[in-house]
Design a binder for these strands. Sequence first.
DNA 1: AGCACGCCGACT
DNA 2: GTCGGCGTGCTC
Length: 798
Amino acid sequence: MIIASVCVDNPSKEIDRLFDYVVPENLKEQIKIGMRVIVPFGTSNRLIQAVVLDIKEEQECEIVYKEIYDIADEEVVLSNDLIQLAYFMKKNYFCTLSEAIFSILPPEVHFKEQIEARLISENYDVSKREAKFLSMLSREKYLKIDLSTINLKRSDLISLKNRGIIDLKVGIRQNTSKKTIELCRLKDLIKADEIINNNRLKQQKRVVEYLIDKGSEVTLSQIIEELECTRSVIKALVDKEVVEIIEKEVYRDVAADYVHYPRHSLTLTQRKAIEDILSSYKNGRRVTLIRGVTGCGKTEIYLNLVEHFLNQDYGAIVLVPEISLTPQTVERFKGRFGDKVAILHSRLSEGERYDEWRRISRGIAKVVVGARSAVFAPIVNLKLIIIDEEHEYSYKSELNPKYLTKDVAEFRVNLLDGLLVLGSATPSIESYYNVSKGHYNLVEIDERIGDSTLPEVKIVDMRNELASGNKLIFSRELYNSIEENLRNNKQTILFLNRRGYSTFVSCRQCGYVCKCSNCDVSLTYHISSNTLECHYCGQKVNVPNLCPKCGSKYIKYFGAGTEKIEQEVKRLFSGARVIRMDMDTTRKKGEHERLYRLFKEHKADILIGTQMISKGMDFKNVTLVGVIAADTTLNLPDFRAAERTFQLLVQVAGRAGRGTDKGKVIIQTYEPDHYSIQLAAVQNYNEFYRKEIEIRRLLNNPPFTDLTYFLFTSNREDELIKVCKLIEYNIKRVLPKDFTILGPTPNFISKIKNTYRWNMVIKGNIINYIELIDKIIYDNTRSTSVKYSIDINPYSLI
DNA sequence: AGCACGCCGACT
DNA sequence: GTCGGCGTGCTC
């Protein structure tokens, strides 16, 4: 008897183990490790998907195993290296094997069980509820049943079947259908001749002649379009067996319209960088970090590296932070490698992503360009992974498993003897630390491509502005520069990492601040909707005319967001054409690209935006970048605040002066002496690293230790506190003395959507204690209202 | 996580 | 007596 051990698609901790199934006779030849199968599961045998992880022969066994219902695809979906990756993730990220496996597979291949029922006997004795259901059924044919809309449970249906009242057909339905096109071709040439010689059938004759002329298969839609005929003409020919229609699977084309992107001649620096990377790879170095200033031509280096591996028939993965934000990168890769490139990002429809995924796994696409999850792409013969802007926080998954893309990529290249290239102008402290320890090879590039030079950066102390009587959001320096830029017909980018109009609304008489009723945060005023909005739960409320607490009418708006900047710009610089890009203006699909192109084509003079405009965008005509408030990220209670501020400022500054004209950057701040602002202004990464790494060492923060962040949530505050303390006590007993446990304490945002939040942080190398701690937390929360999430080395401790 | 089973109170 | 609410325990 052949037994297959499978991992079922169920994220629950309770069943985080393999289950054995008998492989039926008809599947014995086809079944392989890494295949997706459908199995009956649980007492009611509902059908779910699973992945085969082991196949073994067993002579006799005491347990009666169930049989595998069917295979889900013809091919293996999880290659051996990806299976090993799943185990790696389970071991490192506090997640179940199922969570790991089903985040490696594309999410859209999920199955839905489909139940159909038919009435077979009307002589029944049933309950009212059952009778109501039976009245919907018919004797003649099976009807699809949606369990969520009827008042019966699965077991009730089975009971009806067992009593001989209905018959059931249980099957599965794949959520994402393959897209097919209809191809038309000649079937019978003699009959075709008859049609041509028959003068009465003018339209049919045209179709046949057209097909003969083309000499091969033509799509149905093409015939209809070109001959301006209808479907019925072709249908008639099909009925006469003159032509036949075949359905062929097509892949939805994700970036069909690309223009060829020619090979650029490389600069000496670029050539040296490539040689360095490849020779260190030959010497067994798996990882190279490129630290290159913004605008130094990293993409061209990536393109050449990919080409180098493609020439040897190896595949590559290129990761960029949230790809839709950088249409340029897609253009370049598609333009250079054409159909060999697959694109994977979050804004693809399910069908599109599924198609791209299969193009990859079948080896049709050799290169994938994508966001975070594309690191799992089943590239055939994978040898190269590139992570651009490697420091970006979007490379850390916020969902379970909370993997760091770089770790996954490193695991994969180590397994496949491949090469990992990390690129950034401001590498993460962790990565650069790996360089200093000799784990990574380093390539540094300090010159920009062509004539463009690094912009001149000015730091403006906003305290002086206020002291000099300037109450505007813009300093005099920034104001004058914007005006000058408008006069010279140059473009300006204004950056502020806060959306909305004002960040909080407060009463000047009693100090009351408008807060969300569901969350522990202040509400943001949005002028476009004239409401107060909660950025955590989305609640919108009307602005009070009078203070809800003291009844005074001195309600005032404090703090500026992008909406306010937009309004101020329009007020102060009348005639300037303004585009605002933030979550509110780019929510609609395609809106992001539209605004990007508008600005690129110089249809606007000033671009105002949040984080989303800080990376990847390349505007030649931008000579001025203004950072409205550099301190917004600096003062958060987070050990990475300085690093994030530095990175953000360098990235934003890099948007200026990418063309021939020298750029200018103005950074407004209330803390002009802070080292991350000072060093960002002169773009001195090395000095920043030296300062920052010392602080990390002193405070024992990553990369010197692991930080494990536990978030506990519940809508019952008292129980939450009790459980947290209990967990802390139990963990303290098992962990060695060199571990530090911080907390448990209420979270920075102590309540979201009426759910209370407490957190706890453990400092120390935790990897060997994961299972133990996981069990303690699981046991202590099991029969309570407390939910938890665990994150190893999170990007933010807030 | 589902889902069934089983025990207990409410109600035609 | 039957309906349904939720605590408990299992899933090859």
